[in-house]
Design a protein around this nucleic acid. Sequence first.
DNA 1: TAAACGATCTTTAACGTTAAAGGCCGTTTT
DNA 2: AAAACGGCCTTTAACGTTAAAGATCGTTTA
Lengths: 367, 367
Amino acid sequence: MTRSPSLPTRAKLTLKDLAARLGVSAMTVSNAFNRPDQLSPELRSRILRTASELGYDAPAASGRMLRTGKAHALGLCCPDPIGHLFADPNAAEFMKGIAEDCQERQVALTILPGFADAGHSSALDSVALDGIILYAAPDAGPFLERVLRKPLPIVTVDGKRRPGFASVSIEDRPGACEIADLVLAHGHRRCALFGMEIDSGMRSRPVTFAQLEKATCTVTRERARGFREAFDRYGVAVECLPCFEVFRNDAEQAYRLAQDLFEKEKKRPTAILCMSDRIALGVIGAARACGFKVPGDISITGFDDIPGAALSDPALTTVRQPARGKGRTAALLLLQNRNEAIQLPVELIVRRSVGPVPASPPAHWPD
Amino acid sequence: MTRSPSLPTRAKLTLKDLAARLGVSAMTVSNAFNRPDQLSPELRSRILRTASELGYDAPAASGRMLRTGKAHALGLCCPDPIGHLFADPNAAEFMKGIAEDCQERQVALTILPGFADAGHSSALDSVALDGIILYAAPDAGPFLERVLRKPLPIVTVDGKRRPGFASVSIEDRPGACEIADLVLAHGHRRCALFGMEIDSGMRSRPVTFAQLEKATCTVTRERARGFREAFDRYGVAVECLPCFEVFRNDAEQAYRLAQDLFEKEKKRPTAILCMSDRIALGVIGAARACGFKVPGDISITGFDDIPGAALSDPALTTVRQPARGKGRTAALLLLQNRNEAIQLPVELIVRRSVGPVPASPPAHWPD
DNA sequence: TAAACGATCTTTAACGTTAAAGGCCGTTTT
DNA sequence: AAAACGGCCTTTAACGTTAAAGATCGTTTA
């Protein structure tokens, strides 16, 4: 099936071809497209008309890029599979923020695929970009190294701050501390902690608090430390709390881990602190599936304040982070070539998922 | 703040510079990166080592692109603001599908910004791409024209099929017909219809069925026609049904329109057919806010089967479309340069949001 | 022993564009 | 009348890369 039998075949035309055809210089044709003030209106319209007739669309981007050095595209690097950016509501909000800026400035947003394997064949080297947003990268690893070597402006988001690179992050630690404080102030002492991934190992599992605190994933680590600050203040030994690592921030995995916890754990937590709303939503689901009332039997908190957090049942008490603002800020730093480290504020959002410690434990729970 | 004071300043190095420094030809350096079999391992490692020392990262993408003609990127064009792609669950699933293919083939996914205004300055002309996925484009308009003129492989998704262009769509009409049939088979006759946008006018409003049927937005139009087929079969005059256009498929807008309908409309519908799950979810919310039971008082149906559809209360009866498969297929057609028109099947998913016509109308509803 | 070969590296010539400088000519300034 | 100017178009020279063909030389084949 041919493209369009009626139209003149789109043999690849260039500025030069057009120029030859018109009897003008290539430069003049270029100017017709890019700098209307550089030639007479008549000639310009003649050029554009002929271009249109011949099926010449516009100066080729690749030639222009080589010459001008501008790719008109911002790259987004993310160690997780790309689908994650669309599946995770918090990531999606972040992307929306970037997208808004890109839209305004007429710059494309290029999502880079993760690595297939080693070797120099990765798309990272083949795609033309004006800058890179490195999202949620772990503290180290070959992926990171490769990206950081790129001779491009780079801004790291939700990652370790690196001297010489722009960065955007949020108040992970203070936020975690504040919400843990809220839970502790309600009298809870026996708590369980659900965190995001610790490193690039792909699994969900029970872990120690120390492991969370030493996560190579910055966000996990910082939120863990925030939790510790609050627990320390109340004299609660954080090492004794049951902790869990949830792979890729997935609600279902959190659901399963929580179910396990509810079924097996002897010491019953009266509150569960989750490092993300997605996890919290999964845990709430598990709690209800096991017959517990939230917050009557168990209090549960989240982090992020994703759009669904207010709509859950019960509405989730959480820490709001400006995910979209994070995206806008990152794009802005890149587009304005500003090398700054910016930390955005968070806000405690008290809804209905935290209550006082239940007078008596749920009947069917072993004490 | 300088980038990295300790490293040698990243003056822009080229293959040539490196080659000169090493005393070899530029071609050999190029081969060191791209075709290891073309030179001795010793020389290659010497080259790579020196490159690393000098801070030469990899052959510049812009040069490579010009020479090879490959951009290693697929473009995504969407007439709506980019944020939509992340906000709309169905669009997000579609994007995930594309992303999966891109990931596998190590191709980047470039999201193009919509148009700022007229003129040739749009990113569409400045960004290098290997192909374009045109998503949910209306049947006509300047945006469309511009995109279709591009001398690139193009696949239209959820849009009008055009001779000479690849396309991917789903069974919108049969799906709509089938679910309308289900509702009618339950005895419902007095129905209301909620559709997506009709054209690029940005508003939500009551419309006539004829307007829906003539929408320039292909999906809206096709689903309307599917509805008509079913209603015709049952001898129900579709022209008399209250219809609504919901701007940008937004749940909140649907909520408001539905509230209006419940408050003002004399003839009370016993069923509401929505052209998307998002709309349906909004309508369900409005129904409950007005004190109606679903499906006790009103039956409500959706379309798409987004992830949230099964989780809503009541679980939504809807038509499942393979949104992710749509994405994969589109990317595949582009990457394999296949010029085909593919229509993917849909499936009726019966859950709990459709019931029989209530024996008596809700007490507080005027008859 | 001559010819063919393979491994390794080099040379040449684009790929399509645009920044910068230059030429030409009619008009205005001094 | 010479000089300066501005409008309009052209020339030149990259931008950084790689496909294709060529050179060189030691080794294998006929």
